[in-house]
Design a protein around this nucleic acid. Structure first.
Lengths: 156, 156
DNA sequence: TATTGTTATACTCTATAACTATA
DNA sequence: TATAGTTATAGAGTATAACAATA
C-alpha cells in the first residue's frame, strides 16, 4: 500500500522463508535448527572462530550465541578452545563429529536446495546477485536515520 | 562452497535480516514483534480474514497463529468475530485501536524502511522484483523432491 | 575503562499432536 | 471423514541487562 518497495520486501521475505521451509526438512532431520545449521555451515572449512566473528557473520547477538553454542556443544558438534592471543575469548570450532556432520549434512542440504535453481544459468544468478548486492550495500551504508532522528552510531 | 546458489541465498538472508533489523526499532518501539506486526500489516485495509487466510499470507502455522492472535487480542488490537458462513471459523480483524495503530505505526515503519530504497528508480525495482519473482515461482512449483525421495504432496 | 563471553529473566515463536465443534 | 481453530507440550531463539575475567 503506497510504497513501492514493500512489494519487493514481501517478495524477499517469501523467497527466503520459502527457501528455509524447503530446506528445513533435511536440516531438522539431522536434529539441527536453522541457527544451529548456520553456525555449523559458517564454521565448516575454517580453523575456528571467535564469538564476535560468529556473531557478525550470523547476525546472532552474543547472549543468544552462548545458548546456541551450548546446545551444539552438548551435541558434541562444536567445542570451545582457549584463544592464546586474548584470554578473554574462545575459538569455537567443529569437533570431529561436527566436521563429519558438516561434510555429510551440508552437501545433502545444499543438493536439496539446488533443485530450486535447477534452471538457473550464470546470467540468472548475476541478475539476482546484482539486485541483492545493491540492496545490501544500502543496508551497510552509514547515515540512515532512525525513527528518533538519530543516526544509529549515536545510540551505542 | 561449491554451489553457486548459496551465495545468492546468503545475500537474500543478509538483505532480509538486515531490513528486519533496520525496521525492528520502530516496530518494537510500539510493543510489537515481527510476526505481530506482520499480522497487523496484513489485516490493515481489509474487512478481516480467517485464520487460514492469515496463515497462508504470513506463513505462520495455525497452532502458532492462535498464540500470536491471543497476544494481539490481549493488547486490544485485533478481535475475533464469528463467521456466519462457517461457524467453525472466525474472522480476525483490527479493532479501532488496531486500525489506529495500523494507520500510525505502519506508515512510520514504511517511511523508515523507505530510506533503504531512496535511490531506487522504477527500473531498479523491476530488476529486483523480476529476479525474486522468478525464484518464488520455483518455490511454488510442484515436483520438487524431498530428501527421502518423495514429493511433498505424498507426505501429508 | 572497555571488551569478551556468561548468566539470568522473561517473553515469543515454533513444531507437533491430540482435541472440540462444526461441516 | 474432513476441516477450523484450540490446547498442551517441549524446545529454541530473542532482547536486555548485570556480571566476571581479561585487556
Amino acid at each position: 500500500m503506497g510504497e513501492r518497495y514493500l512489494k519487493s520486501v514481501r517478495l524477499l521475505a517469501e523467497c527466503l522463508q520459502g527457501f528455509e521451509r524447503f530446506v528445513a526438512e533435511p536440516v531438522r532431520r539431522h536434529g539441527l535448527t536453522h541457527p544451529q545449521f548456520d553456525i555449523i555451515a559458517t564454521l565448516g572449512n575454517t580453523p575456528g572462530m571467535t564469538y564476535k566473528e560468529l556473531g557478525e557473520r550470523t547476525l546472532i547477538t552474543k547472549g543468544t550465541l552462548t545458548g546456541v553454542i551450548d546446545r551444539l556443544e552438548q551435541k558434541g558438534l562444536v567445542e570451545r578452545a582457549r584463544n592464546c592471543d586474548d584470554k578473554r575469548s574462545f575459538l569455537v570450532r567443529l569437533t570431529a563429529d561436527g566436521e563429519s556432520l558438516f561434510r555429510n549434512v551440508f552437501p545433502a542440504v545444499v543438493a536439496h536446495g539446488k533443485q530450486l535453481f535447477a534452471d538457473y544459468g550464470d546470467g540468472d544468478f548475476e541478475q539476482l546477485d546484482h539486485a541483492l548486492r545493491r540492496l545490501r550495500t544500502r543496508l551497510d551504508a552509514p547515515g540512515l536515520v532512525t525513527p528518533g532522528g538519530h543516526v544509529p552510531a549515536d545510540e551505542g
